[in-house]
Amino acid sequence: MRVARSLIAPVTGVIALLVVWEAAVRIFDIRRFVLLAPSAIVTELFDQPGAYWSNTLVTARHMLIGLTVSLMIALVVGSAMAASRFVEEAAQPVLVVILVTPWVAYMTSIVIWLDFGERPILFLVAFTTFPVFAFGVVGGMRSADPAARELLASVDASRWEVLWRLRLPSALPALFTTGRFAIALALAAAYFAEGSALEPRGLGVIGRRATTDQTGGAEVLWTTIFCTAALGIVGLAIVSIGERLLLRWHASQRT
């Protein structure tokens, strides 16, 4: 029941958005180059559902692998930052630079370095999202109860035990919160990188090609955007479900 309830609210929100959007396009007679009505997108989607489905899966794969790599790197970097103020202060500006630098600025270099194909896509997804997770790991680990830290020290618990038994579980709530931002960022990065890496498959490359297509390009472009958004919603729903299952003990889940 809880899982069903956690899906109803976001779905309602999306339907409301689509209704307002459709009405706006019709009432104000907006030109299709500016904004396409959702009904036109749905028509395009049902014209060739197989193609959109398989490309959505490709993008989902890029996002998932990229985020997994990103989380692994963030756990290592974040643990080091949480363990030492010096490491934290040294790493912070680097992470901020990674977060604020526009991808367009260096995507070409990544493609030249890693060659066309999946690798530059996965790299960009992991590279742009790991600072988000790293900040979550640091904040979460620092939030570990000082009394519990002292208690663990009273039996001389090893660094590894403190990390595994106390710091990581303490970081979980922050990881779920930052996970939501990371998913949104990962989707945008995957979509953009697919277009730049000239991968034959993926929503991003279809969208990129559509921008140069004068006939029906708008429909294709907007449908890839629609699929990307749907993917994001599914991703966020999965995070919510995981949060409810794993954080039953946490105050945020007890409402």
Binding site: V155, R165, H250
Partner: peptide, 25 residues
């Protein structure tokens, strides 16, 4: 050691909390 705050780990059950010091080291 018995600290001033109970310092129980919220994700562990009561039994698992009670055996925490045994589980460490």
């Amino acid at each position: 050691f018995v600290p001033q705050a109970p310092a129980l780990l919220p994700w562990r059950t009561v039994r698992a909390n009670a055996s925490l010091l045994l589980d460490l080291n």
